[in-house]
Nucleic acid binder design. Sequence first.
DNA 1: CACTACCAAGCAAGCGCTTGGTTTGGCAAT
DNA 2: ATTGCCAAACCAAGCGCTTGCTTGGTAGTG
Lengths: 196, 196
Amino acid sequence: MPDNPSIHGIDDSPRGRLLSAAAQLFREKGFDRTTVRDIAAAVGIQSGSIFHHFKSKEDILYSVMEEVIRFNTERLRQAVAAADTPREQLRHLISAELTATVGDTREAMTVMVQEWRCLSEDNQRRALALRDVYERLWLDVLGRLHEQGVFRADPFIIRRLLTGMIGWTPNWFSTNRRLSVDDLATLILERVVGEP
Amino acid sequence: MPDNPSIHGIDDSPRGRLLSAAAQLFREKGFDRTTVRDIAAAVGIQSGSIFHHFKSKEDILYSVMEEVIRFNTERLRQAVAAADTPREQLRHLISAELTATVGDTREAMTVMVQEWRCLSEDNQRRALALRDVYERLWLDVLGRLHEQGVFRADPFIIRRLLTGMIGWTPNWFSTNRRLSVDDLATLILERVVGEP
DNA sequence: CACTACCAAGCAAGCGCTTGGTTTGGCAAT
DNA sequence: ATTGCCAAACCAAGCGCTTGCTTGGTAGTG
């Protein structure tokens, strides 16, 4: 009955609808405080029927994360490819991750950051392997900027500071305010390459 | 049997020992995945005995947060008082919050950031009121720097970017590496006032 | 005696997940 | 067109376990 807003990059099969609903609930209440009965009710089925699509509750969480990493890794790849200079590539990367974080995959991204430790060690390893690909895209661009002398600090640390700045935005940024995503991207970019 | 490392600003009364143990467990496993039996075992008592000191499990969480905010608000106040120029005050603020975040109150600070929504609305409001005092210390200093033209961006937004950068550090910073807390503070300071 | 700190036992509720059976939609053979 | 069939999707019921918390009583201290 409910018509959840589906998350970008997830189809609207029964499985996909469950993933979108779960992502939203996980973000609102956290993984542990969300029951399989909640998720089932959100898509209008019985709680037991969930286990026809996923082998466990944790499997739902992992699937949300896997989908969102895959989708946004591809987004980042296109962001890098669409720019010529490393400086512009970095701007595109920041914009892309901001869009992922406060835009069309907001729920799933937040879940990935906050509910990491709800995964088993095995699933943590699998997810980490996917994240490594994602992170390499950042480090390549930052490494090039560092070689050019655009900033002095260690690229690894700059990436971590960027992760913090961008990852915190869901806690305060609102889409319908004066500050646009691109404005914010510029602001964050200037923390790395300096104000012009 | 266990001898938990106690958290700075918390005494070693029975209640204090419970708070330290709880903070550590909450950080490791999250609030929901930590049972009152876990906490009791960590200080060597029976689970029921906890409710002689706290009226509910959530009350433990709130108490951890209250203690850590009060302690670190005082720390920030002294940090500001110990510096003359706004620029040095900001450096002190960053250093102080970094110390709180990866140093002597690491567990409790991490819990405060990550387990916020496990509080009831009432307790959230109470905790928010305490945080407001804490935040005003930041905004005063950042406002002064902004008036001096040290940076152009909105002080509120700069504070949020700082919160993100500093709040993320427990996920990667290690005390026994080459990079010291003061080095990192300088690095973060330069994201606001520019590299010299 | 009063007070703090604790124990031993257990209750009621909620949890993830299983089970055995039913509905549904599409498709090939008649 | 009609039938027969199958797999996907789902329901209704409930099991076994864990959870936060309560209760009634006890040991030690001033």
